[in-house]
């Protein structure tokens, strides 16, 4: 049974099963092993727990936090049964994920009173921004929304073509000024296009950039400003795309992108490639930005809204 298999409805689950059947033990199995044969939580159990959390990419800071809380509890209660550990851990994770419970839009809903809804997509190189945009556009279009994609990645070779192919595949509008043009201008014009053509949603792609490159991060701020220039309330969402296979650097990425563009939501891609959903916990703890979407496969339908309730339940299901 895979870690993510239970995250989704029947249909979605079937979609996934094939890709996921190879993923290793789920979190709970590992946890059971960590406490196997133990009557109470001792040093060894905590060590095993630390290993479990860290190797699930939860991250050191968050892991230490969880361990310390459990240690505190052991010290207070003098005795803590191994099976209780399960509940406490679940408790902690639910808490961590709930702290950023700011948005509770189900599925792909966007606020009905905002039109056009402007979505700016940002992230480092190779995390899957364009693919995420394609999949989102597909979902929105399926819901009967009129969507336009703005080709704001004017830098990477053939990025504009890639987005154009997606727009054709999905059957939505496409706006581009070509390669090597000013991305801020493309963003501005995309908003313009969306307003003029009565679009419900405009999704603006941007070039991948490492968060350490100040100049490029400033460019991103500029893109955002130029969107606001055309439509004051926009962008209504800044979506940071993170690669789930990324390690602790994801935290740094989130930090710097938030500084540059006020990231309002996260998309976690390539979750099917890893048995480590733990990164979702770490990021939630370090950043109070909600995870909105998770990418669980290459198929056009395999971008799912993230539901933390199901997520935690899956984590601890036997």
């Amino acid at each position: 049974m895979s870690f993510f298999g239970k995250l989704f409805g029947k249909k979605e689950k079937e979609d996934l099963d094939k890709g996921l059947e190879k993923t290793k033990d789920n979190f709970f199995n590992k946890l059971s092993r960590a406490v196997a044969g133990k009557a109470s939580v001792d040093e060894e159990v905590l060590d095993n727990l630390e290993e479990l959390l860290i190797s699930s990419d939860v991250g050191l800071d968050t892991t230490v936090k969880i361990i310390e809380r459990i240690e505190g509890r052991v010290a207070r209660d003098k005795y803590l049964g191994a099976e209780e550990l399960n509940f406490i851990l679940r408790d902690e994770i639910v808490q961590l994920l709930s702290e950023n419970n700011t948005v509770s839009l189900s599925g792909y809903e966007t606020p009905s009173d905002v039109k056009p809804f402007i979505l700016l997509v940002v992230g480092v190189n190779g995390v899957g921004k364009t693919t995420t945009i394609g999949k989102l556009a597909h979902q929105f279009t399926k819901m009967g929304k009129k969507v336009v994609l703005g080709a704001g990645d004017t830098f990477r070779a053939a990025a504009v073509d890639q987005l154009k192919i997606w727009s054709e595949r999905v059957g939505c509008d496409f706006y581009s000024k070509g390669m090597n043009t000013d991305p801020a201008a493309v963003a501005y014009e995309t908003v313009n296009y969306a307003i003029a053509n009565n679009c419900d949603i405009a999704i603006i792609d941007t070039a991948g950039r490492l968060h350490t490159k100040t100049g490029l991060m400033q460019e991103l701020s500029k893109i955002k400003r130029s969107v606001s220039k055309r439509l004051e309330t926009a962008p209504h969402e800044v979506l940071l795309v993170l690669d789930a296979t990324t390690g602790q650097n994801a935290i740094e990425q989130a930090k710097h992108f938030t500084e540059a563009t006020d990231v309002s939501a996260l998309a976690l891609t390539k979750l099917d490639g890893t048995a480590k959903g733990g990164v979702a916990i770490g990021i939630s703890d370090q950043f109070k930005i909600p995870i909105k979407y998770i990418g669980v496969g290459e198929g056009i339908d395999q971008l799912q809204p993230f539901d933390k309730q199901t997520f935690v339940e899956t984590l601890f299901e036997q």
Binding site: I54, S55, S56, D57, V124, G126, D243, T245, T246, G247, Q248, N249, A250, G273, T274, A275, K276, V279
Partner: peptide, 12 residues
Amino acid sequence: VDSMTGQDAVNT
């Protein structure tokens, strides 16, 4: 390999 890869680098 992306140098930013996390714990899963081993399995991959």
